[in-house]
C-alpha cells in the first residue's frame, strides 16, 4: 500500500496472554455474558469480550457464527435474552438503537441501506447529529436552521470529495453502483462524528479497484482517532488492516489475538479457515490436476 508508514499496526492492546475474553489496556466496548437464541438455536453466547479503543478490530467467523447478530445486539437493533455491555463505561443494555447511535456508536449494514430516492447530498446531511431543523417546530422557521444546514453541506462535500462521490451529489442514491453505495453509507456514518464505527462486511460485493480505496478509508478512520470494529470474510483485508482479530464460531468467541498469530491457531483454522487455506481452490476440489501436482 502507498501509506505504509501511516498504516502501522497498533500493538500492546491486551493484558496477559491473548485468549478469548482477554483484558484490554483501554477497552471502549465491554461485553458480558450476552446471549441470544432464536428458538432452539443459540445464535450468540459471548462470555466476555473487550474491544480495544483506537484500534481496528476484525470480527471473523464462518457463516452463521453470530457476527451480525452480535452487531445487532450491540447497536440495539435486537434484544438479547440475557447479558450486559457497556460503551465507554455507559451501560447499553435495553437502550434503543437511535440512542446508541447518538452516543457515538454508529453502524453500517451488510446489505447496504442507501436512502434510494434521496440525493447523495441529502443522504449525507441526514447523517449529522443535533440538527436544529430536525425538530418539528423549528423546521418551519428557516432562519433557525439555515446556517447550520449550510455548514453541514460544506462538511458533507468535504467527505464526499474524500470518497470521490462529490460529482454525484445531486443524483439519487439509487443511481449509484453497489460499491459506491457502500462508500456513501460509510461517508454518511462519518457525518455523525462517531467514536466507534461498526462496519458489517464493508467489502462484500465491492470490486478490487474500489477495495483499495475502501481500505484506505478504514485506515484513515483509525488515524483520525476513531475505533473500528468490522465483520469481514476477506482474510487478506483482515490481515492487512486489523490490529486485533476476534474469531467467532457457533455464537462463541473461540479465539482472539493479533492477526498474524491468531490465524495460525488450530481452533481458528478448524473453525473458519479450513485446512486448505493456502491451497488453490482447484486443488481442494480436485478439478485442476496440474496445479495440484505443482502444489505438492
Amino acid at each position: 500500500m502507498s501509506s505504509n508508514s501511516e498504516s502501522q499496526k497498533s500493538t500492546g492492546l491486551h493484558i496477559g496472554v491473548a485468549a478469548p475474553g482477554v483484558k484490554k489496556v483501554d477497552p471502549i466496548l465491554v461485553i458480558d455474558s450476552v446471549k441470544k437464541s432464536f428458538g432452539g438455536l443459540t445464535a450468540v453466547d459471548v462470555e466476555h469480550l473487550e474491544i480495544p479503543r483506537g484500534a481496528i478490530t476484525a470480527l471473523i467467523g464462518p457463516n452463521g457464527a453470530g457476527k451480525t447478530t452480535l452487531f445487532n445486539l450491540l447497536t440495539g437493533f435486537d434484544n438479547p435474552d440475557t447479558g450486559a455491555w457497556s460503551f465507554e463505561g455507559k451501560q447499553l443494555a435495553g437502550i434503543s438503537s437511535f440512542k446508541v447511535a447518538k452516543m457515538g456508536q454508529v453502524r453500517t449494514f451488510q446489505l447496504t441501506k442507501a436512502l434510494s430516492l434521496l440525493t447523495v447530498l441529502e443522504n449525507m446531511k441526514l447523517g449529522a447529529k443535533n440538527q436544529t431543523g430536525e425538530k418539528l417546530l423549528n423546521s418551519l422557521f428557516p432562519f433557525l436552521w439555515r446556517k447550520q444546514d449550510n455548514e453541514l453541506e460544506v462538511k458533507a462535500m468535504e467527505l464526499l470529495r474524500r470518497f470521490k462521490l462529490d460529482a454525484k451529489k445531486d443524483d439519487f442514491a439509487a443511481s449509484l453502483s453497489g460499491g459506491q453505495r457502500k462508500l456513501l453509507e460509510m461517508a454518511r456514518a462519518l457525518m455523525t462524528d462517531p467514536v466507534l464505527v461498526m462496519l458489517d462486511e464493508p467489502m462484500a460485493g465491492v470490486n478490487p479497484a474500489l477495495t483499495q480505496s475502501l481500505l484506505e478509508h478504514v485506515l484513515n478512520l483509525k488515524k483520525e482517532g476513531m475505533t473500528v470494529l468490522f465483520v469481514e470474510h476477506d482474510m487478506h483485508m483482515v490481515r492487512h488492516i486489523a490490529d486485533w482479530v476476534v474469531v467467532m464460531a457457533e455464537g462463541k468467541v473461540v479465539a482472539e489475538g493479533a492477526p498474524d498469530t491468531v490465524m495460525k491457531e488450530q481452533a481458528v483454522i478448524d473453525a473458519y479457515l479450513g485446512a486448505h487455506q493456502d491451497t488453490d481452490l482447484g486443488v481442494v476440489t480436485g478439478r485442476i490436476k496440474v496445479i495440484s501436482e505443482e502444489g505438492k
Binding site: T75, A101, L115, S116, L118, E122, L126, M191
Partner: peptide, 18 residues
C-alpha cells in the same frame, strides 16, 4: 429530510441516531 429518509429505509435512519 428525516421523514423522507424514513420512507426509504427506517433502519438506516435509526442507525444515524434519529
Amino acid at each position: 429530510r428525516v421523514v423522507k429518509g424514513i420512507r426509504e429505509d427506517e433502519d438506516a435512519v435509526r442507525a444515524l441516531g434519529k
